[in-house]
């Protein structure tokens, strides 16, 4: 199979980037997208050029490292699939495949297809946890969790933190990511005591980062490799609204955002 890969090349955030087209002659349909880039990189290295930088690690769709926009769709045309598990059989002989990095102010570009996603860590850092220290846990079955709650929580907990939701959202909003963690923890009885405080802190951090806002468009859930439902955003809003109307002694301070808003 012959393909042309049109890839965004940019040496660093300070330099200008541009698309470069690379014709590929021997693309096996069984290859993954990343393996296709591997093959390209091998030829680039041998011809003394700089290989395309892209992030990857587990290559089985769970670590969340990989991700770029393929033909205008985050992670490419196949639903519920990360770039590493996207096989080339989804393309036709002779296709031109456009590959560009996640585009968002909150995700500054590092090199080629690699961006900095620390802003997502900040949101978790702000309160995406249950504040239990090692050794404080009650027995596993001491607090029962209904099967439905456990399943709903798991649906949201499946988030891999790849940032495709932000990349796909026309507003570059991180609402799906934040909502997923708020839903994961808030649906479980263990997360109940901190539920409102968590929503306040995480939403505050999300707003402090350079993300856009949610307008319920739904592209995020379409691009999400774990197909996390849009409901998690409503859950976030509900917890946030409830929390906002209660008197509080103190409000958590967001940490300095990954990118200062202009």
């Amino acid at each position: 199979m012959k393909l042309t890969l049109k890839i965004w090349r940019q040496k660093s955030s300070n330099e200008k980037g541009a698309f470069v087209s690379y014709p590929m002659d021997n693309v096996d349909p069984e290859m993954s997208m990343l393996e296709c880039l591997d093959v390209l990189n091998e030829t680039l290295i041998l011809s003394g050029e700089i290989p395309v930088a892209f992030e990857h690690d587990c290559r089985e769709g769970i670590c969340g490292s990989c991700g770029f926009v393929i033909n205008g769709v985050a992670h490419g045309p196949e639903r519920g699939t990360t770039a590493c598990q996207l096989t080339m059989r989804h393309f036709k002989d002779g296709d031109e495949v456009t590959i560009e990095p996640w585009r968002a102010e909150a995700f500054p570009l590092i090199k080629d297809l690699v961006v900095n996603r620390r802003a997502l860590d900040h949101i978790i850092e702000a309160g995406g946890y249950i504040s239990v220290s090692t050794g404080q846990a009650p027995g596993g079955n001491d607090i029962l969790v209904g099967k439905e709650s456990a399943e709903e929580s798991m649906d949201a907990a499946a988030c891999i933190g790849c940032g495709a939701c932000v990349a796909a959202c026309p507003n570059a909003s991180a609402a799906l990511f934040t909502g997923a963690k708020i839903t994961h923890l808030g649906t479980l009885p263990q997360g109940e005591p901190e539920r409102e405080r968590r929503a306040l802190s995480m939403v505050a951090q999300m707003n402090a980062e350079a993300f856009g806002n949610c307008t319920s468009i739904g592209e995020c859930t379409g691009a999400c490799p774990k197909e996390i439902p849009l409901d998690v955003i409503a859950n976030m809003n509900r917890d946030y609204i409830c929390a906002s109307f209660k008197r509080r002694e103190e409000l958590p301070t967001p940490v300095a955002p990954a990118v200062q808003r202009a």
């Binding site: 946890y129 249950i130 239990v132 050794g135 846990a137 399943e151 907990a157 479980l188 263990q190």
Partner: peptide, 10 residues
């Protein structure tokens, strides 16, 4: 197991 459940592992 106890610790992980307390942390919110579903």
């Amino acid at each position: 197991i106890d610790q992980c459940i307390a942390q919110g592992v579903p």
